[in-house]
Amino acid sequence: MFDLLSYLAAEVYGYIKSYVRNLEFVIDILAWPLWVLGIVLGLAIYNPLFISDPGSLAWIAWGVLILAIVSDKLWIVGHCIERELRLGILENIASSPEPVWLHYASIAVYSIISTFPAMVLTVAIIFPSLGINALPANLGLFTLGYVLAELASSGFALIYSSIAVVVKRPWIATNAMQFVIPILSGMVPYHVAPDQLKTVMQLNPLSYPFEIMKRGAIGQASMPIGLDESIALSILSIAIFYAAGIKILNRTIDRLKRKGSIQAQ
């Protein structure tokens, strides 16, 4: 157990050391709020009254954050195997004594660390510029929801990473998913969604952590579900996502080894 934790800590530390000092990291953090602003206004223009109504605009803005978080996870975690295969380092990773799933779990943890400053910057600068209260209505609940949402979406992306490595042009699928998944996960508030979308949102495990996050941020519920149930469903879905993700990941790496396609492409 201690070995696993020290591997995980070393991996996350390595990622932070290599990427956080990188200009790419700074640029991503700076670009994130700009994309969020653009999409919030792009949605709000459908009902321009919202632009001068911070209460309504808050629903849209926190909803667009779902898109930003999911998109980040899909690109960082979802493309992790494909990226390392492309860079020619997957074989080395698979040959190391460290369990391979731990390496990818550490990418999921790193992705949470990397999204956090961008989200803080967005909420601290962009939200007030739109007249939205940057301080969540219930900071504790918001933090809980945010952590659960990050874990759930990175777990989901971990499952996707095994698909992305076998698809020929994964960026096309990722582009499609980064728009579709948020819509099904509460980017559009549940209470204004049509019945079919409401059903999908109820069935989609990603909806619940994002619901907790928005509930903490805005102070109002959107889905007709109790907080305890939402938390329980979120934790259950995270456990399932990670268990399934790790299982599929190990199989994918084994398959790549068997086929001899684990070397640099």
């Binding site: 792009g42 949605l43 223009i45 459908y46 009902n47 728009f179 819509i183 559009v188 204004v192 049509p194």
Partner: peptide, 23 residues
Amino acid sequence: IVYMFIGVLYLGGRLIGSGNELF
């Protein structure tokens, strides 16, 4: 991707919007 992006905005916008008059 252009159509998908516009489609998502259109769908989201339609749900929060109130018809074309205000737009």
